[in-house]
Write a protein that binds this DNA or RNA. Structure first.
Length: 491
RNA sequence: CGGGGUGUAGCGCAGUCCGGUUAGCGUACCUGCUUUGGGAGCAGGGGGUCGUAGGUUCGAAUCCUACCACCCCGACCA
């Protein structure tokens, strides 16, 4: 048990907050609602970025960068869009400070008022479509497949590390296409990339589905999402992909000359995942001892800890370890040798468990005699003695095994916590006692959705893309329904 | 923005009700020695605008007033 880390069963929320801080992922900053992502946490983000960026590039996308500031008037060009974001925008009104009259500080210079206020981007559709207007004249300019890695600001009432902060980091893709079909296909393509990333790298199983009108992105025609189940039975929207139709093309007058000599509006998509994924990663796998990280995203995959009885053993252990490190590095394994003599082995064991390092190797006098090392798995907390000769191979295989194993465990958890219900009583009972995903018939109206939300806190997370047709009746209104939808309490 | 709570050493807290030595404890930090296969032991040491500003008093962490910040629960949201 980690020192001072609350238990999940006692207080899930406190467990999460303390874990983020104790594992050195992030801390609160002097700025309300904004966090400092510390080096260990940021290196997880860098691993995520690297994997996603590669997948985007492989599917023909390029990175670019658009301004942090958006003229206020741009935001209101698309009616739904501005309505969706207006309540959470930071606004820049002035461009200069001056010394205050008492000489002790600075004040906003009233003479430096901006003619048009600037919005700190909550998302970049407007500035980007305003730019695309200039990039697109002909069908020959299409498609445009651009992504940007950026920060955005959404002024939130209440914030939580990674899951919801005022400023956060993300990638936002913005594409423009000749045809509707091509744009829709792009939307699905990205959704599949997100799902693949979540499952193969994060080891988090996700549902792929389409959002209801209520949950749809402001300005989109359709919003698709991946939804992941956390250990407390709540769902996390982990990524979204939007089919924008011609909404932003209309708002910003983005037209192209067709092959046939006509003039058509461009079709668009946008899609994003954020540092929220780190929150999901933590909540999906970690336990009362600390983080459990999947090897593919762990900043350190293997830590080696020497155990020394007398100082003259250092040299011998260092020599043995350096050979092991060379072999592992040759296989592309990231390994850290912690030979600090300022901490005891037991302290280090606990520390690296807290930080979720997937594998730990210990080497002491007994191992020197036997040419072995002690190998400990973070996910199962099991230990075994292995030979040093082929340790690189053992470690490589075991890292793969851990990656698969924690995915299987998360998948089993999700399966155990996905239930189908046919009555509202049953629905409420499951949500109250167990949580998780609850599949039920819904009449398709926003009114019913809102009432269920008010009464149970559960929302429709998505309608699964591969949901089977099945005649039934809405659990709330009794009206006919052709498909079940997925409900859950959500972050 | 409503309701509740908390501000005292890097972190976690006691002391506040009922004003009175030099503001204390745990942990972390520094030095030394002994230690090292699951968060070491002993000894010594450093570190404080008691959230801010005003007031009451011979005397304020403690009482009064105002303000500020943060946390939790709601409403809003990736």
């Amino acid at each position: 048990m980690s020192k001072g880390l609350p238990k999940r069963a006692d207080d899930y929320s406190a467990w999460y907050n303390e874990l983020v801080k104790k594992a050195d992922l992030a801390e609160n900053s002097a700025v309300r609602g904004c966090m400092v992502i510390k080096p260990y946490g940021y290196s997880i983000w860098e691993k995520m970025q690297a994997a996603l960026d590669k997948m985007f590039k492989e599917t023909g996308h390029s990175n670019a960068y658009f301004p942090l500031f958006i003229p206020k008037s741009y935001l209101s060009r698309e009616a739904d869009h501005v309505e969706g974001f207006a309540k959470e925008c930071a606004v820049v009104t002035h461009y200069r400070l001056k010394s205050s009259d008492d000489g002790k500080g600075v004040v906003v210079d009233p003479d430096a008022k901006l003619e048009e206020e600037l919005i700190v981007r909550p998302t970049s559709e407007t500035i980007i479509w305003n730019t695309y207007k200039n990039w697109i004249q002909s069908y020959r300019d299409l498609p445009i497949l651009v992504n940007q890695w950026a920060n955005v600001v959404r002024w939130e009432m209440r914030t939580r590390f990674f899951l919801r902060t005022t400023e956060f980091l993300w990638q936002e893709g913005h594409t423009a296409h000749i045809t509707k079909d091509e744009a829709v296909e792009e939307t699905y393509k990205i959704l599949n990339i997100y799902a693949k990333f979540a499952e193969e790298f994060m080891a988090v199983p996700v549902l792929k589905g389409i959002k209801t009108e209520t949950e749809r992105f402001a300005g989109a025609v359709d919003t698709y999402s991946i939804e992941a189940l956390m250990q407390d039975g709540k769902s996390l929207q982990a990524g979204t992909s939007h089919f924008l139709g011609q909404n932003f093309a209309k708002a910003f007058d983005v037209k192209f000359a067709t092959k046939e000599g006509g003039l058509d509006l461009v079709w668009g998509t946008s899609w994003g995942v954020s540092t929220r994924l780190i929150g999901g990663l933590i909540m999906a796998h970690s336990d009362d001892n600390g983080l459990v990280l999947p090897p593919k995203l762990a900043p350190i995959q293997v830590v080696i800890i020497p155990i020394i009885k007398s100082k003259d053993q250092y040299a011998l252990i260092d020599e043995k370890v350096s050979g092991v490190i060379q072999k592992m590095k040759a296989r592309g394994i990231s390994v850290h040798y912690d030979n600090r003599d300022t901490y005891k082995p037991g302290w280090k064991f606990a520390e690296y468990e807290l930080k979720g390092v997937p594998l730990r190797l210990a080497i002491g006098p007994r191992d020197l005699e036997n040419n072995t090392m002690e190998l400990a798995r973070r996910d199962t907390l099991t230990k075994e003695i292995v030979s040093m000769d082929n340790i690189d191979e053992i470690v490589e295989n075991l890292l793969n095994e851990i990656q698969n194993s924690i995915f299987r465990r998360a998948m089993e958890y999700r399966e155990e916590n996905t239930r189908e219900v046919d009555s509202y009583d049953e629905f409420k009972k499951v949500l109250k006692n167990k949580g998780g995903f609850v599949k039920a018939h819904w009449d398709g109206t926003a009114e019913t959705e809102a009432k269920i939300k008010n009464e149970t806190k559960a929302t429709i997370r998505c309608i699964l893309l591969d949901e089977k047709e099945e005649q039934g009746n809405c659990i709330y209104s009794g009206k006919p329904s052709s498909k079940k939808v997925v409900f859950a309490k959500a972050y």
